[in-house]
Design a protein around this nucleic acid. Structure first.
Lengths: 172, 172
DNA sequence: ATTTTTAATCAGGGGCCCTGATTAAAAGAA
DNA sequence: TTCTTTTAATCAGGGCCCCTGATTAAAAAT
């Protein structure tokens, strides 16, 4: 039987981690970035860039389903990226309803630059701790996948694959 | 000398954790909440509620500095909470520039209800793993505090205190 | 008494996301 | 081949998180 106090300790630390991490992220982009340079890689425009760097030339609809976004949200982010010259839009010739989205050179660079970087706060951990953390996170992730699965079975396969696809590219 | 591969493994798992956690959160609030019921406790309106449950009757300015928000953002969130009858605004009698914010009963209830709950994905961990995770997160958090400290020394004391204050209340 | 600082507000904007209604093109049915 | 339905994308509008800039009212400082 698990120890509730230990669970609460870990939960508290995890909450603290999220809060502190959040402010560190804000701090860094407030100083570094000029304006509107958020792109957290896992949301909005960043998500699109990442999906395209994984698989360029997707249609908006394909992007939407892969990223679990509505077609409207996808359109919004794509249009913003077009304005920033990070992607291009072109009508499909085989199916004129479709719009094909492609990364520009700048877009490709922007998508890959921030990735594959080991965060500072991991560098202070020993090898043993890294192994422990990896193992623990694997368990936690599996548990979360289970939650997704029970709530929305159709989502989990698509999602899990896309996650592992992206991670493979960044970290190997 | 730390093993880069181990670091990357952990980093990957952590990124995966964030992504999966993110979609689980979305999933749960999409099904559970009626409309506009985000309140993630660490952002926006939730932040305000939390700060007030820790220390009721603060002025807007005090809220803003404690939560590291601008006065305008603070005003926005407070006004939204007033509309939801979760807090009240009243002019200070001693300094008529100031507006004192107080939790209503509903606000206090709303602030404390979601907290202090151990997330599902921690329940599958053994006591040993929980201890390991707590220790590792402590190190990671310390590292993040260091980052904040070097970037903005004035922020760290205020922030760290407020975090530990809040966590103490939720988890003890 | 006048200037300066402070607390709050209004106006406006950017980012992330959604629902609803509409258009244009493709695919299916009569 | 028409007629209908489905599909891909768009426009309009909304909610949430947050910021900068300009302005007002009141307190503090000179």
């Amino acid at each position: 039987m698990p120890n509730l106090v230990k669970q609460k300790n870990a939960a508290g630390k995890l909450i603290e981690f999220n809060m502190v991490k959040h402010t560190v992220d804000e701090l860094s982009h407030r100083t570094h970035a000029a304006k509107g340079e958020h792109q957290s890689l896992f949301q909005g425009q960043g998500k699109i860039l990442l999906a395209l760097s994984q698989n360029d030339g997707l249609s908006q609809k394909e992007l939407a389903t892969r990223l679990d976004l509505t077609a409207q949200s996808t359109a919004e982010f794509v249009n913003k990226l077009v304005k920033k010259h990070l992607v291009t839009k072109e009508k499909s010739t085989t199916d004129r309803r479709k719009t094909i989205i492609r990364l520009t050179d700048a877009g490709r660079k922007s998508a890959t630059k921030e990735a594959a970087k080991v965060p500072e706060f991991l560098k202070g951990l020993t090898d043993t701790e890294l192994d422990q953390l990896t193992k623990i996170l694997t368990k936690m992730n599996d548990s979360l996948y289970d939650e997704i699965n029970t709530a929305n079975p159709s989502l989990v396969n698509k999602f899990r694959d896309s996650v592992t696809d992206r991670l493979r590219d960044w970290f190997l």
